[in-house]
Amino acid sequence: MNFAKSDKAAQIAADFTDATAVQGRSLWRDARDRFVKNRAAMWSLAILSLIAVFVIIGPLFAVWDNEEIDWDVMGDVAGMGFPSLASGHFFGVDDLGRDLYSRVIQATRTSLLVGLIGASMALVVGTVYGIVAGFVGGRTDASMMRIVDILLAIPMTLVLILLLVIAGRSFTMLFVALGAVSWLTMARIVRGQTLTLKNREFIEAARAGGVSEMTIMFRHIMPNLLGVVIVYASLLVPEMILAESFISFLGLGISEPHTSLGRLIAEGAGTMAYGTIWQLAFPLFFYVTIIITMFFIGDGLRDALDPKDR
């Protein structure tokens, strides 16, 4: 039998006999525990998950399609289009007689996507840019950061509008434009952190140990950056949603047949004087809930990952 001679088996045996070794608590685990203890953040996470579930399985219960016009109520939206289980318009209808329940689901999905995709674009571009600038240092760093400074001095929402007007208001363009304007602060933060880390003694220790620069970057700098990056990205998601909603409210964002919460709120706000308050209330409720929960989650992440910041 050469079972016991295989390297894998020996490894398992060693692990088994070393059961006495205390399992350490990594910073990640500490952070997770702190986050779980944060009640506001955990509630927010639960509520946000419910909304996400709602967006996914909500359409199964919809009686009306989001583009279908209910001709029966269209003539008297204020009198007959109110939310009701009987008519199948759970959230009522919009000004054109379309089912608001389906429209809100569609809009929430758009807004969540905008937040996630916009933030991840910022995350990828900003992190790579920041790490390169911080790690290479010297003149490269100086000129790269000069560009960021100049771009940061331009009002971003206006640039966003400019981009969308010039390149056309498509879904892809929206993501590209959001990513294009939001990576700057991320790059700045990551670069600052990289610089601090680069001068820490454990990086010097690795260098003295003959570890190559690339390995240092991946093994030591990246994992230590992750905390800050996660915190900032989590706060970027609601900001992206905010920005998109703002320009959609102005009528410069996503155009029909697509819709977003900002667009729905704008429509609701335009008609609220006629007594169709639900057209404002439902999108507003979803919007505010998403943003507040995301802020609480971001806050909880910051407290968990960067405890000295409290």
């Binding site: 609601p238 609701g268 507040i292």
Partner: peptide, 9 residues
């Protein structure tokens, strides 16, 4: 969570 375009309406 209450930006201008929410506060306005």
């Amino acid at each position: 969570a209450l930006p201008n375009f929410i506060m306005g309406p």
